[in-house]
Amino acid sequence: MLGIRPRQRVTQANWAEYMARRERQAKDTAIKQFFATPLPAEDTPIADVPMIALDMETTGLDEHHHAIVSIGLVPFTLDRIKLAERRYWVVKPTRPLSDTSITFHHITHSEVAAAPDMDTILDELLQRLAGHLVVVHFRNIERPFLEAAIKARRGEGVMFPMIDTMSLEARLHRQTLWARFRRWLGRPPVSIRLNASRERYGLPAYQGHHALLDALATAELFQAQVATHYRPDTPLKDLWC
């Protein structure tokens, strides 16, 4: 259809420079190691980029008042999602778990009570993320929460480039001429939530809100987005942010 082609103009940060600077400044070994591991260059075709889908469940939406409860990781490439290499942790939130978030995430008080503090898994988490391009659905949760949680424990935060499947959907459905036309007609905006987005690509509905399942769902969604709107040789810089 007319005008639904994504706009490719994305604000680019110079990630390589940032990473190099952080490596020099880092005091924590794990963090230093993380920034020392090079990421694929920005013009690498997406088909050659090792990726890792990341999802976390939190007690709320504000990283200053809420905390991380669980983290799921699924490494993948454009070809394959490697479920066998998945990781999943439940961590003890620094703030108590509210009852509503319990029903939402299916994680119980006792599970959380038995869980370790996030500090004990941080080294492994950083090690697994290093060298991979992290893919999330809605970076405005994952990025600030991770930054805040690491900063609280190691005295320095961690930022890195991400591919955000939700913002890719937004580019397609919220920022096109077609989307503006719909808005002008007073039609509700297309939902860009994980399950609604997946549905558009014929992906099955998963019983949501489990960090690992959502990470898997995000990886699948990204494969579908590239297969539909991009090409295997689309450079990384057109996708990350």
Partner: peptide, 13 residues
């Protein structure tokens, strides 16, 4: 389930 790998294929691929 433990060992499954997943991949998405667009119509026609």
């Amino acid at each position: 389930a433990e060992r499954v790998e997943v991949s998405y294929f667009k119509t026609g691929s």
